[in-house]
Nucleic acid binder design. Structure first.
Lengths: 187, 187
DNA sequence: GTCTATAATTAGATAGAC
DNA sequence: GTCTATCTAATTATAGAC
């Protein structure tokens, strides 16, 4: 693995763990075993490197969500697969956590991949649920867009509750509660 | 308002806006219009002052949630009142945001009020829903604890999605989706 | 209680040698 | 491409005068 790649992956880890404000160039260099001159040769500075890392984290999130959502079966089965997919719960969401970071929100460039990734997720969940409606899997009053937002929020909020409690239990409970509510809309 | 009080309130604002890592003593002093000597006279340092501010933010969150949850009516009416209570959505949750802050999570002292506040919230929501079950307001398979975790997570996650999108819409959708799902469990 | 001076450490980067 | 030296500003305090 070359130096630029090691720098990006180290930054992905550190952004996930400590956010943008809490991640220093020095910490990145040490984690990547790269010198200062090396980092500034490959990237113009911290924001440039962070942008590459955030984009990469977004791509990885999409790929993992897509794996669950594209499995065969009913809409509820796909959503359940997404809700129960393997996660490092106590690390939180590699993208959602950055939505809490003031410096990321303040920068149009850094915020863009965060916005786009979470927008994509809601759209993808909406599509899965809308397809379920088209196939007659749900009761008549079912609202795909609102339910998709609820699913995405339960996962993001589950991470928040779990990290605060230092326990996976609140995440698990929140997800199971959502799943049970969803099941009761299924015909 | 005396100096110590101004320092605490300023820290509350800044922690809410920028988190612990992103809030410097200097920024606090300027916001509070207090000198450096003044701050270090009243508090031993940044962690001490932050602890006072986090505790205060927790108390305020409880008071506001309690106002909605103690209104008269059915369990669903109370939960709806909580979900739709007035919020500064784009600022996020004054407590939940800190669950994403590495320095807060790493400190037992600073993490404690965050943990306790969100635990209290889940317990309080569980109690409201369990009372509804006792009154026969819900279908037989209804799970108060899981649903309470779901409600709390939807709110926390709604904040995350809204901040990422710079729009209140994802929060509103997530909350309305949750409300509709809950209503379908009501007898 | 508040103010100013001082200071050790880190953040974030530039310059130029190799 | 990588390394070391250098630099300015910010962070997080402490000390002592008023």
């Amino acid at each position: 693995m070359d130096t630029a790649e090691r720098l990006i992956r180290s930054t992905q880890e550190l952004l996930w763990e400590r956010g943008y404000v809490g991640t220093s160039p020095k910490a990145i260099q040490q984690h990547a075993k790269a010198g200062q001159g090396s980092m500034y040769h490959h990237f113009t500075g911290k924001p440039d490197l962070a942008l590459a890392a955030i984009k990469r984290n977004g791509e990885e999130l999409r790929a993992e969500a897509e794996t669950a959502l594209s499995r065969p079966g009913t809409a509820v089965e796909k959503i359940s697969a997404y809700l129960h997919r393997e996660r490092e719960i106590l690390r939180g969401c590699r993208i959602g956590g950055l939505a809490q970071d003031a410096d990321v929100l303040a920068s149009d460039e850094l915020r863009a991949p965060v916005t786009e990734t979470l927008d994509w997720l809601r759209r993808r969940l909406t599509a899965v649920l809308a397809e379920g409606v088209a196939r007659g899997e749900f009761t008549a009053d079912f609202d795909p867009a609102a339910t998709a937002a609820t699913i995405a929020a339960v996962v993001q909020g589950g991470y928040v509750l779990a990290r605060a409690a230092r326990s996976e239990e609140p995440f698990t409970q929140a997800v199971e509660g959502a799943e049970k509510l969803l099941l009761s809309k299924q015909l």
